[in-house]
Simulated scan of single mutants.
Amino acid sequence: MSGHASVLAMNPVIGLSLGRIAVGAAAVANPQLVAKNLGLDPVSNPQVPYVTRLFGLREVALGLATLTTGGRSRTGVIGIGVLVDAGDAATSYLAMQDGQISRKAGLTLLAPAVGAVASGLLALVRRG
Results as ranks from 00 to 15, higher is better:
residue 1 M to F: 02
residue 2 S to F: 12
residue 2 S to R: 08
residue 4 H to K: 01
residue 5 A to P: 01
residue 6 S to I: 13
residue 7 V to G: 01
residue 8 L to D: 03
residue 12 P to D: 09
residue 12 P to Y: 05
residue 25 A to K: 11
residue 27 A to K: 00
residue 28 V to Y: 03
residue 30 N to K: 08
residue 31 P to T: 09
residue 32 Q to C: 10
residue 32 Q to G: 11
residue 33 L to D: 11
residue 34 V to N: 02
residue 34 V to D: 04
residue 38 L to G: 08
residue 39 G to A: 06
residue 39 G to L: 00
residue 44 S to I: 11
residue 44 S to Q: 07
residue 45 N to K: 08
residue 46 P to G: 04
residue 47 Q to K: 08
residue 48 V to E: 07
residue 49 P to V: 03
residue 50 Y to V: 13
residue 52 T to A: 03
residue 53 R to S: 11
residue 55 F to M: 10
residue 57 L to G: 15
residue 57 L to Y: 05
residue 57 L to V: 08
residue 59 E to D: 15
residue 61 A to I: 14
residue 61 A to D: 11
residue 62 L to D: 02
residue 62 L to T: 05
residue 63 G to S: 06
residue 64 L to T: 11
residue 64 L to H: 01
residue 65 A to E: 04
residue 66 T to N: 07
residue 69 T to Q: 06
residue 73 S to A: 15
residue 74 R to K: 15
residue 75 T to F: 03
residue 76 G to C: 09
residue 79 G to M: 11
residue 80 I to P: 00
residue 84 V to S: 11
residue 89 A to L: 13
residue 91 T to H: 03
residue 92 S to A: 15
residue 93 Y to D: 03
residue 102 S to N: 02
residue 104 K to T: 14
residue 105 A to L: 00
residue 106 G to Q: 08
residue 106 G to N: 02
residue 111 A to K: 09
residue 112 P to C: 04
residue 115 G to I: 11
residue 117 V to K: 02
residue 118 A to I: 15
residue 118 A to S: 14
residue 118 A to M: 14
residue 118 A to D: 06
residue 120 G to C: 06
residue 121 L to D: 04
residue 124 L to G: 09
residue 125 V to K: 13
residue 128 G to Y: 13
